[in-house]
Design a binder for these strands. Structure first.
Lengths: 234, 234
DNA sequence: GCAAAAGTGTTGAGCTTACACCCATGT
DNA sequence: ACATGGGTGTAAGCTCAACACTTTTGC
């Protein structure tokens, strides 16, 4: 059995919940993914996940962090975890390259500076994707949905302090279905995932009761309830 | 950034539920993992997962299948899926080697021929393991436990036809806690994971009502209920 | 008849969604 | 006052664990 040298690359699927950019319309926040547009062949003009070749003395995680630093302020990336490996021999042209994919999460209010070729795209409406990067996004999204149920991973999408309605919007965007703020509160409080700060937000210009502010109890990834579920309505 | 060539290996954590080998005692089936003992340094005498270097024209899955064929009859491996990548630069001596790990499952009654250096070890009592193979087994076990709840993955551990008490023993061994046969039946039947064959087994020598036989409806991996849970007692 | 093993019925607990109702604030 | 958004209480449903009880066999 011949062993040619294989390249190894890492690719990151970085998500953030952001307001849509429709100016007039009522903009609901939606889940977005960070992509850059290829200026050169192959697959010129199509959109790619950030990443690149693995360095000699790096493990995968260090490599992702290094490569992401070229696109976003790393301090904004609150969570990073390994996903699947894509290894089809012909998945990219040129030397045989194995790709390890990662899931990255950026909290909501942050708006990192982006290079000119790089943009946030709504996950529900992806542009033409290079190579096998489309399925990678899908895979990452599935993982995110699953982990929102049974871990505290929401901390990596939410601001430091937030009203419950804000958190509901974030969960709703990430899960892809409506979420009841009432129940979200009880579920997350019972598991001690979120706690009240004691302070309240000010009401908007149209009035309304001021919202109590919450924060995530832990800002480190934790499995909170192995058997929990946030089910879609109906 | 220098890019040295990195090797890539695949390693398989292959599980089977087997009777313990205590001769006199009441032998309860337990979850076992397939290991081979290293005859040469490094880590001579310690136990390793089956696997080896990735070939030039293989994707990861083909490579695992090829390498496993040296240890067990491949037709016995009813399920194979990707797990995590281990990439610490110094995880093994010599050239930098990245390991992709896999979970493999072998149905219960099969007893494949094994090479002389290869044996089944109970997961609850592992021998000294080479390199980072110990944590790999643990990771695979966690994945198996999780998937038994919300997928039909049990088909890959169970015989083609089986009594419910047999299935209970298998689930119990794999999950690591007692399982009630009554409830297992209802849970798996409601989800159409198992169906009755219509036939029954003969009673043992000590009498008892003959058991109805079941089979898995699908012998292909399937997510049966995203939010299901088989909880430990208590 | 009696022990052993399998299968059924029933209860109760836990968690979740759904929704009606009450509270606090701005104009 | 009233509209607006936030928060609480409560009911109903689903799923699962627990366990007593019935059925069917061998000796």
């Amino acid at each position: 059995m011949a062993h040619t040298n294989t390249e190894h690359e890492v690719l990151a699927v970085v998500f953030q919940v952001r307001q849509g950019e429709a100016p007039g319309a009522r903009r609901k926040p939606a889940l977005h993914v960070l992509l850059w547009q290829r200026a050169l062949d192959p697959e010129r003009g199509k959109w790619s996940l950030p990443g690149g070749r693995l360095g000699a003395d790096e493990d995968l995680t260090s490599s992702v962090r290094r490569q992401l630093a070229e696109k976003v302020d790393l301090r904004q990336v609150a969570h990073l975890e390994q996903l699947a490996v894509f290894s089809a021999p012909d998945r990219v042209p040129g030397p045989r390259t194995i790709a390890s994919t990662f899931l990255g999460l950026v909290p909501s209010p942050a708006t990192p500076e982006l290079p000119p070729d790089t943009r946030w795209h709504p996950v529900s409406d992806l542009p033409p994707m290079a190579f096998d990067h489309g399925p990678m996004v899908e895979h990452a999204h599935n993982r995110l949905v699953a982990k929102l149920s049974y871990t505290n991973i929401g901390f990596a999408l939410a601001p430091g302090e937030f009203a419950l309605s804000t958190l509901r919007d974030i969960y709703s965007a990430a899960l892809g279905h409506p979420v009841d703020a009432t129940n979200l509160q009880r579920v997350l409080e019972r598991r001690h995932v979120i706690t009240r700060t004691g302070t309240t937000a000010r009401s908007g210009r149209s009035g309304g009761r001021p919202a109590a502010l919450y924060r995530f109890a832990d800002s480190r990834y934790r499995v909170t309830d192995e058997f929990a579920a946030l089910r879609p309505p109906g």
